[in-house]
Design a protein around this nucleic acid. Structure first.
Length: 801
DNA sequence: GTTAGGGTT
């Protein structure tokens, strides 16, 4: 990769970066920060001011989500006091489990592997002292006294639903108990899925230690890029997405005697699809069992779905957490948050505070406000003031590390976090939780295929999970910045992801397994429109034929852990002689789409750094430039990334993704070498952009007026996102994503020729296919047809020409 | 002429 063509287009000098340090937005209000139930003070429409705004209606008018009644009936409209008044502790049933108030019966120890002097059946050696130390801790877990019940019910049933709250020990103990009995059955193993990589790894480490075996022997884990299992493994923790991928090569999951789906209440797409597939596997395989574990809410729905499966219910156990509600709803939840923190700091005993907000801008503002207002204000037990830390996932890892460290002496630690702190990152020592009750959620509109993020009320399950963060090391208090009535009105569970996502990849996978996505037995069936969209899209991509059967090409596409559009891009590359370049681009787009870091206080420097990589005809080529340079600076990558405002973790994962994709491409019999001979600079750029066009033709846009484009599929008028480096004002563009923020923008774009699009999918690009005259006209120009062109000209819309 | 939260193959 060093023949001088590695860098695309002229690198821009710094001279262009001198447009002054203008910052856009800063702290722009994307939405009104209204607390629950408060009324709009002005007459303007807000999407976020009351519960009944959150309803999502299906095609047939059914309300899928939102409050049962009008917010106006339940919430008062009077002026809210500035200082929140906490209602007295109320004994809410949904909270009881979180507090651990369930009565517990102490029973004598049973006989599963705890006899002293016994030999470890797996290693043949005596148990270590550490084993007995951990065993004492295990005995204190609520699940410990339910071991026979678990063994008995699982023994008698092929479907079992097990619910247990935080602290019940279900994630570590249930798979362990079951693997002692079923782990070697028919030489098959047990898998336990987790929604997150980090959980799969840490739980496996813990369980290996508890079973006194080496990680990777009897107990292991498997996540993308990392497989810590061996032929000895009887219990494997893995991510749900990874297990779902395995179905591509082994649809009956024949390696496993039992699969345990953990955290089913989180309802990830992978978990939902797995549950549907495994339900079928249970009917088809005599020797297979399914256990679904979930937090307590909504267990009935799971039982019903799994043919009235029996339920095992395990109480949670943790330190008690007192829940406080507001007596009246608040007008502005950010302000209320600051006030609540201030009150806690000044009046409540020593202890750290965890606060849940949404997004970097809210968090940064709150951190700044609090440092200014409370930084050195003495509080109860903390005479020197507060130490405030932000926490969100895109933060550099050294900054994340700080939330685990002790604050300066005599200061109270306050962590202002996004949802990462709800499940992924656990901070010990938190005594107070402040929960305004909102989170950002992905919303998918199948009609224009736009995914966007919106701030919406959390589910009751989330609220309970958040409050539980206060009771990890000692008794704590949670301040919910909404009324108890509002809590009662929360939807029980988070709205499942499968109902608000693009399903192209899922539908291809189901078709590859000869399953009918329209009839698939989903726990919550996605809107039929989304499934139809996916089928149509796969047809245009050549993955399915007219009868809906998977083509040979579609079979090859399904092998890659990518969106079908990207799989096709990748498969087009070898023939064009640019396999290496496209592998890197696809890896970047799928694993590091936001690799550019742009801190608000250094926006100008960051923009200048980015310009060094820019290709004027393609942001995809800009990503290739970044990747190539990153690989060159691999041995000093940390500093290099820092200097160039790049996210190192993102680039690392892109590098791993590229390796994996290259291996899969090779396995399919494609050459992964690039052909350099005969290419000049632009020849290569063209070949790469042709490959991008071949997969992404449905994400194409045509210029309709100056600096404005029209997407071909849905006629959305869009502008280039200001972060784009494309300056050539092409007629045709491919875009990677459409985002609607202050305007509709297309982001990560590439100039293409209309002719390439036509070659990519003649079926898709016919003038009649498009309802918009401008699009039809442009396509007619390409195809030579004239059918729609006259009307298009008559509309006099083509001002730009 | 900008702001995307948390996951995953």
């Amino acid at each position: 990769m060093s023949n001088g063509n590695d860098r695309w287009s002229a690198l821009k000098g710094d001279s262009q970066g001198s447009d002054g340090g203008r910052r856009y937005g800063g702290y722009s209000k994307q939405y009104n920060r209204k607390g629950y139930g408060s009324r709009q003070s002005s007459g303007s429409e807000s999407r976020y001011n009351s519960w009944d705004r959150y309803q999502v209606k299906t095609e047939d008018g059914e309300v899928l989500r939102g409050s049962q009644g009008s917010s106006d009936r339940r919430y008062s409209n009077r002026v809210i006091e500035t200082k929140p008044r906490w209602s007295r502790f109320s004994d809410n049933q949904k909270d009881r489990a979180a507090r651990g108030d369930e009565p517990q019966v102490l029973r004598k120890d049973l006989d599963v592997g705890d006899g002293k002097g016994e030999l470890n059946p797996f290693t043949g050696r005596s148990f270590s002292r550490n084993y007995y130390r951990l065993l004492e801790l295990r005995k204190k877990l609520p699940i410990y006294n339910h071991r026979d019940e678990v063994l008995k019910i699982v023994g008698e049933n092929k479907f079992v639903v097990l619910v247990g709250d935080t602290g019940s020990g279900k994630t570590t103990q249930v798979p362990q108990i079951l693997s002692m009995k079923y782990g070697k059955e028919n030489n098959k193993l047990i898998a336990c899925t987790q929604p997150r990589r980090i959980a799969a790894v840490t739980v496996a480490q813990r369980v290996a230690e508890e079973m006194d075996v080496r990680l990777g022997d009897e107990v292991g884990y498997s996540i993308r890029y990392e497989d810590e299992t061996s032929s000895r493994t009887i219990l494997k923790y893995c991510t749900d997405g990874l297990l779902l991928r395995e179905s591509v090569t082994d649809p009956l999951f024949s390696k496993y005697s039992m699969i345990i789906i953990d955290e089913a209440h989180e309802r990830t797409i992978s978990t939902d699809i797995l549950m549907g597939m495994l339900k079928q596997v249970v009917f088809e395989r005599e020797d297979f069992r399914l256990v679904v574990m979930s937090a307590t809410l909504d267990a009935e729905k799971l039982q019903k779905y799994f043919n009235n499966a029996p339920l095992i219910s395990i109480p949670g156990r943790m330190y008690p957490v007192e829940i406080k509600y507001l007596e009246e709803p608040v007008e502005d939840y950010l302000q209320a948050t600051i006030e609540a923190i201030s009150q806690i700091h000044k009046e409540e005993p020593a202890g750290d505070i965890l606060v849940f907000l949404n997004g970097e801008d809210e968090i940064s503002t709150a951190v700044k406000d609090l440092e200014e207002s409370l930084g050195s204000v003495p509080g109860e037990g903390h005479p020197s003031g507060v130490h405030v830390l932000p926490l969100f996932s895109s933060l550099p890892s050294n900054a994340i590390q700080k939330v685990f460290e002790d604050p300066p002496k005599n200061k109270r630690k306050i962590v202002i976090a996004t949802n990462v702190a709800e499940t992924s990152i656990t901070i010990d020592g938190i005594v107070y939780v402040v929960d305004p009750g909102f989170s950002k959620q992905k919303v998918y509109n199948p009609r224009n295929r736009v995914e966007s993020l919106q701030v919406a009320p959390v589910s009751a399950a989330s609220a309970v999970q958040r409050s539980g963060r206060a009771g990890r090391t000692r008794a704590g208090v949670t301040y919910r910045l909404y009324t108890e009535d509002a809590f009662e009105g929360l939807t029980a569970m988070t709205y499942p992801e499968i109902l608000r996502s693009n399903l192209n990849s899922v539908v291809l996978q189901l078709r590859t397994l000869s399953m009918n996505p329209v009839e698939f037995d989903f726990l919550d069936p996605p809107p039929p429109e989304t499934v139809m969209r996916a089928l149509e899209c796969l047809l245009y991509l050549g993955a399915l034929d007219q009868t809906g059967q998977v083509t040979k090409f579609g079979k090859a596409m399904s092998v890659f852990p990518l969106d079908p559009e990207l799989s096709r891009t990748l498969l087009a590359a070898p023939e064009l002689g640019v396999a290496q370049e496209v592998l890197a681009i696809v890896a970047m787009v799928s694993a590091a789409p936001n690799c550019f870091v742009r801190p608000l206080n250094k926006a100008r420097e960051a923009d200048q750094a980015k310009r060094r990589f820019e290709a004027e005809e393609s942001d995809h080529l800009t990503l290739l430039n970044v990747y190539t340079e990153y690989m060159i600076h691999n041995n000093s990558s940390q500093q290099w990334c820092w200097e160039n405002f790049l996210n190192e973790r993102a680039l690392q994962s892109a590098a791993k993704a590229k390796e994996q994709l290259e291996r899969l491409l090779e396995q399919q019999g494609y050459s992964t070498k690039s052909k350099r001979i005969g290419f000049d600079y632009y020849g290569q750029s063209i070949a790469i952009r042709k490959a991008i066009a071949q997969g992404n033709f449905m994400f194409s846009a045509v210029e309709c007026k100056r600096a404005t484009y029209l997407t071909t599929k849905d006629n959305v008028e869009v502008k280039l996102h200001p972060s784009s480096g494309v300056r050539t004002r092409p007629t045709w563009l491919i875009y990677n994503e459409l985002v609607i923020t202050t305007k509709a923008f297309i982001r990560t774009v590439t100039q293409v020729e209309g002719g390439w699009l036509l070659e990519s999918s003649p079926n898709y690009f016919t003038p009649d296919h498009f309802t918009n005259d401008i699009v039809s006209y442009e396509i007619a120009k390409l195809t030579g047809e004239r059918k729609k062109s006259r009307s298009a000209m008559n509309t006099n819309l083509r001002q730009a020409y």
